Simulated scan of single mutants.
Amino acid sequence: MNAAEGRSRNRRGEGARLREEIVRAATEILAEGGGEDSVTLRAVARRIGIAAPSIYRHFADRDQILLAVVQEAFAELKDRIETELAKSDRPDERLRAICTTYLGFALERYRILNASRTAEMAPVAEPIGQDVFGLLVQAVQDCADAGLSRSTSAFSDATALWVGLHGLAELRPASPKFPWPAGVLEVLVNRLAMLD
């Protein structure tokens, strides 16, 4: 919706609707190729057809909007991963499902996950995405417990794997002409999680 179309007022009891629209507008701005700097109160307000000061009822500033965007993205990522995890009981398949889902989501929404740099400065009880990372650590540990991995430190090996996934998510779009080998994700997972 743009400002020219106007925006209908929320009905009584629908105050959260504007908050959702603010977060959605900021997400769209990031997804369209704008960096964090393109998410301004004016840009968000213009997109949903409100006056910028109306945002202050829901968010103190732009960084709080970005924090909400990143939190929602990681919540969606966690839901997608848990859906994939439910499809198998085999530890190695579950680990690969996490990595495949994470990479797919990161390639689709890297700018949004990357907005976490600003969001990380916000005071929150737990770092954003820590619960998703915990799923990765547990999956590496489950592989080690099942004798499918030589990992002696699930946290360290999951960290290496997480770094590798982020690198791949950033390099693939940045280097589309590079002759990416088939199965590069599988190689990455096998080596960094020390799967046998």
Rank of each mutant, 00 (worst) to 15 (best):
V137R: 09
R9Q: 11
T152C: 06
V70E: 09
A51P: 06
A182E: 15
L185V: 05
N190W: 03
F178C: 06
V39M: 05
L161N: 07
L171T: 07
L95R: 08
S8V: 11
E108C: 06
R12G: 00
I55G: 03
R117C: 02
D145K: 13
L18I: 14
E72C: 10
F105W: 06
G35P: 07
L188G: 04
T100E: 15
N2R: 13
Y56R: 04
R9G: 11
F178S: 02
T27E: 07
R172M: 15
S151I: 03
L41W: 00
A106L: 14
F105S: 11
V124G: 01
L103G: 03
L168I: 07
P181Y: 12
L113D: 00
W180S: 03
C99R: 03
Y56V: 03
Q71F: 01
R191S: 11
L168P: 04
T159P: 04
A86C: 11
L148V: 11
L195T: 07
A45S: 08
G6P: 05
L148S: 15
A60Q: 06
Q130V: 11
T118R: 14
V44N: 01
A169D: 08
Q130L: 14
E82Y: 03
R46H: 13
D157V: 02
A75C: 01
L185R: 04
I128P: 10
Q138E: 15
G49F: 00
D89I: 01
T159R: 10
K177E: 15
Y56Q: 08
W162A: 15
P173F: 07
L30F: 08
A182W: 05
P123I: 10
S149T: 04
V124S: 03
R7M: 03
R117A: 12
P91I: 05
E186Y: 07
W162K: 11
